[in-house]
Design a protein around this nucleic acid. Structure first.
Lengths: 202, 202
DNA sequence: TTTCGATTGAACAGGCCTGTATACTGAACG
DNA sequence: CGTTCAGTATACAGGCCTGTTCAATCGAAA
C-alpha cells in the first residue's frame, strides 16, 4: 500500500499548490473551493474529501508556502549585542526576504481579515516575538520602550517595505532608512515627546 | 415641480448614505447593489434608476463623504518656509484628521483594488501633489530628493498612522515620530546610502 | 482476479448576486 | 381632476458559490 498512498498525497499536494497559487494572486478573500478545484484539475468533491473547509486549506497552504520560502532566523538576531546593529541586521534580512517573497505575501496580507482567527492570532504572536528579539533589553523601559516597540513593529512591516520600494527606493535603501528610525527612536530623547501621553484622543 | 424633485433627491441621498455606510464598514469590495438597496430601504430597481453601476455610486459616495469630512488644507502648508516645520505641520494635521476619520477610511483603503480605476488614479495624483507641497524646493534634488519623496509618501500614509497607533502611540506621538523621519532623511546624509542605488534587484 | 477506495460525473437544493422586464401604486403636478 | 412618473412588487434568466448525495470508473493492493 505504498504507491497508493503516494498517489493520494500527490492529489493533496496538487490541491495545496492550487490554493497557494490563488492565495498569492487573487488573495484568500477571493479564493473559493470551486476555484481551487478548477486550478488543481480536480473535482470539487475531491477537495472536500481532503479538507473540511477553506480554513483547513489555509493552514496546509501556509505550511507548504513557508517550507518553500523560509523566513529569516529571528532567534539568531539575539546574539547581536547592541540595538543599532540588531536593528540593521534584522530589518536588512527581513526586507531582503520581502524583496523575494513580497509579491506572494501582499495579496495574503491584504486579505488578513479573511484569515482563520487562529492564523491571525499566531501571526500577531510571531510579530510580537520578533519585536522582543529586536528590542532585547531595550524593551519594557517605560515610555521609551513603548515608543520603541511601536516603531519596531512599524519598521518591520511588510507594508513599510512595499511603501518605500513603491516610492522609488531600493530594498537596501529602504532597510537602512527603516533601521535608522528604530535606532533614532531608541537613542534620541525626542523633544515634545518627553512627557506622559497627551490626553487627546488617539 | 419643486417638491417632486426634492423627494427624488432625498431618495438619491438615502442611497448615497447607504453606500457610505457600507463602504466604511464592510468596504467597497463587499458592497453590492442589493446590499445598498436594502440598507437604503429601497428597491434594487430604484438604485438602478439613480446610478448606472457601482462605480458611479462610488463617485457619489466619495463626494458625499468628503463634503462631510474635509481633509486638511494642503495648499496652506506651502506658506511654511522650511521643510522641518512644514513636515511637522502637514503630518500633524494629517494624522489628526486620520484620528477622526481613520475608522471610516481603513476599509475603503484596504479595498483600494476594488476602486474604479479613475478614482485610484485621482488618489495617486493627490498623494503626489501633497508630497510636492511638503517637499517644496527640497524636491528634485537628485538622489536625496528621491529618498525624501519616498519617506514623505510613507510617513503621510494612512497605514503608517494606523500602524503606529496600533502599536500603542498616541496620534501626536505618531505624528512627531513620522515628521522626524522626514526631517532626518532630508538633513542627515545617510552613510551607506551616499552612492548610486545598488544594482541589486529591489 | 477480485476487492477496496480514491476520484469522477451528474445532480440537487439553497444562497447571494446581477441585469432586465412587467404591471401596479400613489403622490406631486398642471 | 386627470396626467405623469418615482418608486414598488414580482418575476425571469443567468452567474458563481456552497454542501451533499448517488452511481460509475479505474487503478493499486491482496
Amino acid at each position: 500500500m505504498r504507491r497508493r498512498a503516494e498517489l493520494v498525497d500527490q492529489t493533496r499536494l496538487r490541491i495545496t499548490e492550487a490554493a497557494v497559487r490563488l492565495h498569492t494572486t487573487v488573495g484568500p478573500a477571493n479564493t473559493s473551493i470551486a476555484g481551487i478545484a478548477e486550478v488543481a484539475g480536480v473535482t470539487r468533491l475531491t477537495v472536500y474529501r481532503h479538507f473540511a473547509d477553506l480554513d483547513e486549506i489555509f493552514v496546509a497552504c501556509t505550511g507548504h508556502w513557508r517550507a518553500l520560502h523560509p523566513a529569516p532566523d529571528v532567534a539568531a538576531w539575539s546574539s547581536t549585542p547592541d540595538l543599532p546593529s540588531r536593528a540593521r541586521l534584522a530589518i536588512g534580512e527581513l526586507f531582503a526576504w520581502y524583496a523575494e517573497v513580497g509579491q506572494d505575501l501582499l495579496p495574503i496580507y491584504r486579505d488578513i481579515d479573511a484569515w482563520p482567527p487562529r492564523a491571525r492570532e499566531r501571526r500577531r504572536a510571531e510579530a510580537s516575538a520578533m519585536a522582543d528579539v529586536i528590542l532585547g533589553d531595550a524593551a519594557g523601559t517605560g515610555d521609551l520602550g513603548r515608543r520603541l516597540r511601536a516603531v519596531v513593529a512599524h519598521a518591520t512591516s511588510l507594508f513599510t517595505w512595499r511603501s518605500l520600494v513603491d516610492g522609488g527606493l531600493t530594498t537596501p535603501e529602504a532597510a537602512e532608512l527603516a533601521a535608522r528610525w528604530v535606532i533614532d527612536a531608541g537613542s534620541v530623547p525626542v523633544p515634545g515627546l518627553a512627557g506622559p501621553p497627551e490626553v487627546r484622543a488617539t
